[in-house]
Computed example of a mutant assay.
Amino acid sequence: MDNPLILYGCIVILTGFALLYFALVIWSPAPIITHESEKKYRSFKSTKKPLSLTPLEDSGTVDLTVVIPAYNETERLPLMLEQTIDHLSSLKKKRTYEILIVDDGSSDGTSEFSLKLAAKYPKSDIRVVTLEKNLGKGGAVRHGMLYGGGERLLMVDADGASRFNDLELLWDAMDKIAPNKGAGVVVGSRAHLVKTEAVVKRSLLRNILMYGLHTILRIVGVGHIRDTQCGFKLFSRSAAQQIFPAQHLPTWIFDVELLLLAKQLRIPVAEVPIEWHEVPGSKLNVVTASLQMLRDLLIVRANLLLGRWQVVPRKQKSE
């Protein structure tokens, strides 16, 4: 009688695993497709004729690419862009740069508005890319990184919540962990603000979800980073070339996938405190987004553990 019970138990267990694997396949995001029109950009000098972007696998063309994901950001983008250009223009040690605004399928004319803004800064290389459909913040950042020409590439939110001047803190940290164009990631962090008004004044629900997320992050393997979600991160070109082609998540939790990939690739990651403030106009529904984040965290971790999503280290070219 024992043998049939054991056999029955094995069948149940195997069926359960098969169902879980089937659910993983169904829930995993489809590959992100890049359309030909998205490989080109417009600028105030070329509003009608799109020009070719720089593929990430090519050599860098400027010192810095600033990638700004933008979904319906006509209200918040002007101040953020002004602060960005003011800082980059004020540096004593000049840096060549490009600003890549990735319009994530907006419905408010973000692309045309961005081109008008670009005309105010004729000395700055402001490039506007229009995605054919809305991918999500992670998809927009990924696209900007895959077509940025910078030796270093900065992702920054369009709301201006992070103080752009703090780029220099990230830059100095990158010099330390990734000299000579090595692979490195520097994460802007708000962890030091947890006990300050900037976070205390946030809603109780947001703070509960924040602490819950931190607990889950420790479980999935990125507990060593205190703030994974700050939208102010700097990548060396070498690191970006290895991380972003392997990124699958287009949703809000994509930051965690990037850090998991960096950990798996043994790319050094530094965390640097920055200034930050809450900006009205967030498009994030905290409850819905939190449930989606939990699902996506489990999906990315399971796919990496099972080898469905492969990560291939990039061989460094000899100088």
Rank of each mutant, 00 (worst) to 15 (best):
L5V: 10
Y8T: 12
V12M: 09
G16P: 01
Y21A: 08
A23V: 12
V25P: 01
S28F: 13
A30S: 15
I33D: 11
R42C: 00
R42L: 02
L51K: 10
L51P: 00
T61E: 06
V62F: 08
V66M: 05
V67K: 00
A70G: 09
Y71P: 02
E73F: 06
M80N: 12
L81P: 09
H87I: 10
L88P: 07
L88M: 11
S89P: 05
K94P: 09
E98P: 00
S107H: 12
S111K: 08
S111V: 09
S111L: 07
K120A: 14
V129W: 00
T130N: 06
L135V: 01
E151Q: 14
E151T: 09
L153H: 01
D159Q: 09
D159I: 01
R163I: 14
D166K: 12
E168D: 15
E168F: 12
M174W: 11
N180Q: 15
K181A: 13
V187K: 02
V187R: 03
S189F: 04
L193W: 08
E197L: 13
V200K: 12
K201V: 02
I219A: 14
V220P: 02
H224G: 07
I225H: 06
D227M: 04
Q229S: 07
S238C: 14
L249A: 01
W252F: 10
F254S: 00
L259D: 02
L261W: 01
L261H: 11
A262E: 05
P268K: 14
A270G: 08
P273D: 10
E275K: 15
E275W: 11
P280Q: 12
L284C: 08
T288Y: 13
T288N: 15
L291W: 13
R295E: 11
L298D: 11
L298T: 14
L298G: 15
I299Y: 03
G307L: 12
Q310V: 15
V311R: 08
Q316F: 12
E319G: 09
